[in-house]
């Protein structure tokens, strides 16, 4: 209810200010006699904008309370290893349709959930080390995306090569995590 009210107040303020600004000033004058209503309208509009921001803050606060506890990013990251290695091992024997489905499932089940909480890596390990891990992991993600694209484009060899690159990049991530 606060948000529509805020928007309405903003609009009323804008209408008052803009209407007041329409009056033509007397010769040699910059502002017309209605200038005080411009100020009034702008103040009303500012109140509307402030209320609008306030309503959004309330919304965010409410949504934070209803959000469940997030998973641990390190656990999520380590959990990717097994299905990724499994995909690498079975990829040569799969058709391109099967490959694109398998890569999509891996991305949806493991990669995206980690991406949701990846910022905690930096929070816990610091900018330098956290950034190293995230930048390397971004290569994993990009190469999996490439594997999906290649498989969808029926380029079997490129899909496998991309999965291999993703696995190699993941090994770098694993070593950095263990260091």
């Amino acid at each position: 209810m606060l948000k529509p009210t805020a928007i309405l107040i903003l609009l009323i303020g804008v209408v008052i200010a803009a209407t007041a600004a329409m009056q033509m000033p007397a010769p040699e004058q910059t502002f017309a006699s209605s200038a005080r209503f411009i100020v009034l309208g702008v103040l009303v509009a500012i109140a509307g904008v402030a209320l609008w921001h306030g309503s959004l803050y309330q919304e965010r606060k409410g949504s934070r309370k209803t959000t469940s506890a997030r998973s641990d990013p390190f656990t999520l990251l380590r959990e990717i290893k097994s299905p990724l290695l499994s995909l690498q091992a079975t990829a040569p024997n799969q058709s391109t349709d099967q490959l694109s489905a398998a890569v999509e499932a891996l991305i949806q089940s493991y990669v995206l959930p980690f991406s949701e909480v990846r910022h905690r890596i930096v929070e816990q390990l610091g900018m330098r080390r956290g950034a190293e891990i995230l930048v390397d992991f971004a290569i994993v993600e990009r190469m999996l995306n490439r594997a999906w694209s290649a498989a969808s484009d029926e380029s079997h060899s490129e899909a496998i090569a991309s999965i291999n690159e993703a696995t190699a990049a993941f090994n770098v991530v694993s070593r950095a995590l263990d260091a």
Binding site: A17, A18, F31, V42, A45, V49, W52
Partner: peptide, 14 residues
């Protein structure tokens, strides 16, 4: 000036 003031307020909206 009047338009700029109105625009500035609108620009500050979410």
């Amino acid at each position: 000036v009047a338009g700029s003031a109105i625009g500035a307020v609108l620009g500050a909206a979410p």
